[in-house]
Nucleic acid binder design. Structure first.
Lengths: 159, 159
DNA sequence: GTGCCAACGTTGGCCAGACCAACGACATTC
DNA sequence: GAATGTCGTTGGTCTGGCCAACGTTGGCAC
């Protein structure tokens, strides 16, 4: 006699990709959130720091597009990171509509720590998968993410 | 010369499983949400209907565990579905703490339509993947979901 | 040059969903 | 019969995604 797990979700849900993804996204976000909370930060903060480190100083709108954080939410995120001294905001002299946001030394230091922290989280998240399975998974997810990415309008490369 | 997509997320993020999952969960939820919205419903409603159809009449707490919808949110969900005539709520004669929730004929009919609708959504979501890749993906996700499932306390095999 | 449209930062707001604490009513266990 | 635990319910918090609108500024067509 099979023990019926009274917590088991019905197959109707268990086999639906959208449901599965959600069920995995939940612990993923929780783990990341808890990890960052230990550092007093949230996901947006890390996304912003990481992006700045990789693309260099940029305008808020640019950062919004890259992180897919809404422009309006970006304002608060930058505010908070400025407050913490991890980031600087200065008016762009070449285009007075823009702010240029850049990493401070403290921000860069902080980021290194967060990277380690998040690497740890990833391995918790993917624990049951073998290395090659992890690669498979991220490969598939990347293709899906790209496919559903916001309409890519490519503006002329900055001179 | 590679055109630099000013919308492209930095590799720091793009290679992190937690971020990828989120980026896919977003369109997934949006697609499902939009589909169900066309029927005047939300995700919780479908989850509940599908679960009822599969496990039969059940208490709200039971349904909560299976759908991983919080008990308190379950109240509202059941209310709304009762209102729509898709579900019935009756006190459990054998345990007066409980309500027994069950599908109505209308609910079952509605569910069939939603199933079709959601099948369509799944294929939109997974569009770029071949059939075997889809199986791979759901396999991997299922393992992750199970692994991170809420502490599986299975009614202990009575000692 | 002037006029028009687009992009920028910012404010203020909405909504879905995940959660948590507490309550009275009831069941189960010892 | 007292303690412990479950159930439905209320009421609330928090995060994250998103949208509309505004004044400011830049770029472009004419």
């Amino acid at each position: 006699m099979e023990p019926v797990d009274s917590r088991r979700a019905p197959d109707r849900l268990r086999t639906q990709a959208s449901w599965l993804i959600n069920q995995v996204a939940l612990p993923a976000n929780r783990l990341v959130g808890e990890g960052l909370a230990a550092a007093g930060l949230r996901r947006h903060h890390y996304a912003l720091l990481a992006t700045l480190d990789e693309v260099g100083p940029a305008s808020q709108a640019d950062l919004s597009r890259r992180t897919s954080i809404d422009r309006s939410d970006m304002v608060a995120t930058v505010n908070e990171l400025v407050e913490l001294g991890y980031v600087e905001r200065a008016p762009d002299p070449t285009d007075r509509r823009r702010n240029v946001v850049s990493l401070t030394a403290a921000g860069r230091r902080r980021l290194r720590q967060l990277d380690d922290l998040l690497a740890e989280v990833q391995s918790q998240l993917l624990e049951p998968l073998s290395p090659s399975e992890r690669t498979q998974l991220t490969g598939l997810l990347t293709r899906l993410a790209d496919h559903h990415a916001p309409a890519q309008a490519n503006p002329p490369p900055r001179p």
